[in-house]
């Protein structure tokens, strides 16, 4: 690897001033599971790494009246063990259980997954479905950006030089709601999504009608997508296969996948529809309180 400096700030203020001092030549380091390999390959050659793992604000994993706060540096292994996330934000747990293997999950953060801004990032569709908002701190103060507007292209996002992602904040989940994420990969684990879909639904008290739904898509466009219309047309409709098929059709219309070794464009468009239906079915089952465990590879 090239030569660089390493800093380990313990407060957000210190981290921001280090970022400013390095004047655009520093990069934040969370779990390093993307960044260290990219540096080894020479794709990034920052003058300094600012290790964000000791900053308290970036390690928060707790709920309050505003909802759930997931600090940008919190590794997947902590998220999958958090009781409230397991009860109410299950799509996020589904995502964090399949990012790499267990060793990767010990280090990999959701913040790093988002900031790396890969089109196939496995947590981003769940963040979109669960209505996550990015809290970003920088020299000019703090701003909030909905997750679906964060990525701007492969490896590109709205962060300006000197800015740090502090946390992703989620509104409280309404009663009778459920969510799920799944991806298609050719293997059972340790692979990159051909297509990934996350969805969250809210039902009425009867459990038969959908009040609201949000769907996030991965690996089918230069950035993860919010399938806004596909979710909106479910509102007020019965939670059944006819409606799920309509949502799938709407989702298929907005994707623009590429052909690569993992699948052709046509295949990805088809799989988008298949997964949207499966994920909606599972999210509805969870909203009704039915047991649904996602075993990756099944």
């Amino acid at each position: 690897m090239h030569d660089f400096d390493y800093e380990r700030p313990v407060s957000l203020v210190e981290a921001l001033s280090l970022m400013a001092r390095h004047n655009g030549h520093a990069r934040p380091l969370a779990g390093g599971t993307d960044l260290i390999d990219q540096m080894r390959l020479g794709r990034h050659q920052p003058g300094a790494l600012i290790d964000v793992k000791r900053i308290a604000e970036l390690n928060v994993l707790a709920a309050d009246a505003d909802g759930l706060h997931v600090g940008a540096a919190v590794p997947c292994c902590r998220i999958v063990e958090q009781p409230l996330v397991n009860q109410q934000y299950t799509a996020l747990v589904d995502s964090c259980r399949i990012i790499g293997g267990i060793q990767i999950q010990s280090r990999a953060s959701v913040g790093g997954n988002l900031c790396n801004s890969g089109p196939a990032a496995d947590s981003t569709p769940s963040l979109i479905a669960l209505q996550g908002v990015c809290v970003i701190a920088g020299p000019a103060g703090t701003r909030r950006v909905p997750v679906e507007r964060f990525c701007t292209g492969p490896g590109q996002n709205v962060l300006q030089p000197g800015e740090l992602l502090v946390e992703i904040c989620f509104p409280p989940r309404p009663p009778h709601s459920g969510s799920h994420y799944r991806r298609l990969i050719p293997r059972n684990e340790m692979d990159i999504a051909v297509v990934g879909v996350g969805a969250a639904v809210e039902l009425d008290e009867s459990g038969r009608t959908i009040r609201a739904a949000r769907i996030g898509l991965g690996a089918v466009a230069p950035t993860p997508l919010w399938a806004e219309e596909a979710g909106a047309l479910l509102a007020g409709q019965p939670a059944d296969d006819v409606q799920f098929a309509r949502a799938a059709e709407a989702a298929r219309k907005i994707v623009s996948p590429i052909t690569d070794m993992r699948g052709t464009r046509e295949y990805r468009i088809h799989v988008t529809g298949v997964l949207v239906q499966r994920v909606l079915r599972a999210a509805v089952a969870r909203a009704r309180g039915e047991a649904f465990t996602y075993l990756p590879g099944h």
């Binding site: 380990r8 599971t33 260290i36 390999d37 080894r40 060793q103 010990s106 340790m190």
Partner: peptide, 27 residues
Amino acid sequence: CSNGNCGACTVLLDGRPVVSCLVLAME
């Protein structure tokens, strides 16, 4: 592999398994 895929370099860091090829010694 030195890129996190093979697990040959697995060690336990504060009790958790990690691939040591993706951890900086300073960390």
